[in-house]
Amino acid sequence: MGERTRIRAVIGLGNPGPHYAFTRHNLGFMVLDRLASRHHLSFRQQSRWQAMWAKLPLEGGEVHLLKPLTYMNLSGEAVRRLSQRYSLRPEEILVVYDDMDLPPGRLKLALSGSAGGHRGMASVLEALGTPAVPRLRLGIGRPPEGMDPALYVLTPFAPDELPEVDRWLDRAVMVLECVLREGMLKAMNKFHQRQQ
């Protein structure tokens, strides 16, 4: 992916419904909500795509923001429909999601890779037919010993964790805005060095 390839869509992964709203698995939705709020945007339902959708106007062209309303393991269907409707290439789509393999609060940008066991990302990669899909992974850390990982990711953040999560969201939005302004490679260099 060259520096000239512009990100034209940002996908946040999560599960729909208030029951899942503040769970670890919904960090992708939470980041997109924070990004939309900063730019005074509202999501609207797109029944054809089974998703919530907004458009972020930027210099150089608008960016689609999408939150699939299917459950996590079917997220790719909405992404595929959006990409067909707007002729988006996989390298123009950035996916935001939680990752147990990263320490809590750690952010990692990548141009491609496997799903790493994340069912939502696996669905997106399958729908787009390539592992070369940019992504922003947000670390949630490993579950406590003896806790089922599937239960851990669906557990809401505790009240005392929320101020820290708030900082994670602000940092993730800052990274996304840098990606949209300057491209993936510059953003990767800037933020990965800062986290060292």
Rank of each mutant, 00 (worst) to 15 (best):
H40F: 11
L41H: 12
F43C: 06
F43E: 01
W53R: 09
W53Q: 08
A54C: 03
K55G: 10
L56W: 13
E59W: 10
E62V: 09
V63W: 01
H64K: 05
H64I: 03
L65T: 02
L65M: 05
L65W: 05
P68T: 11
L69V: 02
L69G: 05
T70I: 01
S75T: 03
V79T: 07
V79F: 12
V79R: 11
R81Y: 13
S83A: 15
Q84P: 01
R85V: 08
R85C: 12
R85T: 13
L88N: 04
R89I: 00
P90D: 09
E91W: 05
I93V: 15
L94F: 05
V95R: 00
V96N: 03
D99W: 04
D101C: 06
L102P: 00
L102Y: 01
P103V: 08
P104L: 05
L107V: 06
L109R: 02
S112P: 00
G113Y: 03
G113I: 03
G113A: 04
G116S: 06
G116P: 05
G116R: 02
H118E: 06
G120E: 09
S123F: 13
S123N: 06
V124G: 09
E126A: 14
A127T: 05
L128R: 03
L128I: 01
T130Y: 14
T130A: 14
R135Y: 05
R137L: 10
R142K: 10
D148L: 09
D148H: 11
P149L: 04
A150I: 06
L151P: 00
T155Y: 11
T155Q: 15
P156Y: 09
F157Y: 08
A158F: 01
A158T: 04
A158K: 13
E161F: 03
P163V: 14
P163D: 15
E164G: 09
E164R: 15
V165C: 00
D166R: 13
D166G: 14
W168V: 12
D170Q: 12
D170Y: 03
D170N: 11
R171M: 12
R171K: 12
M174V: 13
E177S: 10
C178K: 14
